[in-house]
């Protein structure tokens, strides 16, 4: 078990999982793709609190995944409108919520190559609530315009687009995305972070209310559940994350 922390103290990962928990409230089916341990934390906590609801599909998991028709089933399921929320990140994300998971610089001769677009160029269009997350909130990652559009934030009228982004969650703040305006609005600042700091570290222009509220911290009950109930489940798919964030190391399995 992890060492007890001072009262009220929580890690960024725990705060962001609590934010995502609120963003997925009341949904029926939440799917979590590759390399999304914080969304997985939120989804498994939601399922625990909801006594089995929502359905949670962790795609890299054998235990927390009820798909039986192979890797395509997620995409078919989403195409049918049966996946309510999904999570995407990006090497770059811009102010119009375009995401880049491919490369920085010229595509043909990139300066930096990222892994690739995964399912984003499809799921971003068809899943109603896509939550963007990026733990490094900097001008390097949150840019005015992405170098490569893996998937666009919005589509022109006439393009089939029942889905899209609803929020961008970072280590400094939460932005909501307005699909009509095609812009982010600053929703809340995490404890200890300031508007000036967010302006300094964000490469795109965004809307904001006159007074920006603070992001609520996770409740002690939710923190206990993340550390005690969710961490052991996460360790199957994200052993490094479970060990680093929650201090949980799994036993060798057969």
């Amino acid at each position: 078990m992890p060492a007890p922390r001072p009262d009220g103290a929580c890690r960024d990962e725990e705060l962001l999982a609590a934010v995502i928990l609120r963003l997925i409230a009341g949904l029926r089916h939440v799917a979590v793709g590759a390399q999304s341990p914080i969304p997985a934390t939120a989804a498994l906590l939601a399922r625990h609190l909801g006594k089995g609801q929502p359905f949670v599909s962790l795609l890299s998991s054998a235990r927390h995944n009820f798909f039986t028709d192979g890797g395509r089933e997620l995409f078919d399921c989403a195409g049918q409108g049966r996946v309510d929320a999904f999570f995407l990140s990006g090497g770059q994300i811009d102010g119009a919520a375009n995401i880049n998971l491919v490369a920085i610089g010229d595509y043909a001769a990139p300066q930096v190559r990222f892994p690739g677009s995964f399912g984003s160029a499809y799921l971003y269009y068809v899943v109603p609530r896509v939550i963007l997350f990026r733990l490094e909130h900097s001008r390097r990652t949150l840019v005015n315009k992405v170098d490569f559009i893996s998937a666009p934030g919005t589509s022109p009228p006439g393009v089939y687009r029942p889905g899209g982004p609803v929020a961008l969650v970072t280590n400094r703040c939460v932005f909501a995305f307005d699909r009509q305006r095609g812009r982010f609005r600053l929703e809340s600042l995490h404890p200890g972070h300031t508007l000036e700091e967010v302006l300094d570290h964000t490469g795109f222009d965004f809307d904001r209310p006159e007074r920006v509220p603070q992001t609520p911290s996770p409740s002690p009950e939710h923190l206990d559940l993340m550390r005690g109930v969710v961490a052991p489940l996460l360790a199957e798919v994200y052993p490094q994350f479970a060990a680093t964030v929650f201090g949980f190391t799994r036993q060798e399995q057969s």
């Binding site: 590759a34 998971l101 001769a109 892994p115 399912g119 490094q240």
Partner: peptide, 23 residues
């Protein structure tokens, strides 16, 4: 032909990235 090459929790796939950036 791929949708992604990555070592997951162990980071980017280094030989893939090097081969793509160097053409």
């Amino acid at each position: 032909e791929t949708s992604a090459v990555s070592l997951g929790e162990f980071g980017p796939a280094p030989r893939f990235a090097a081969a793509v950036t160097s053409g």
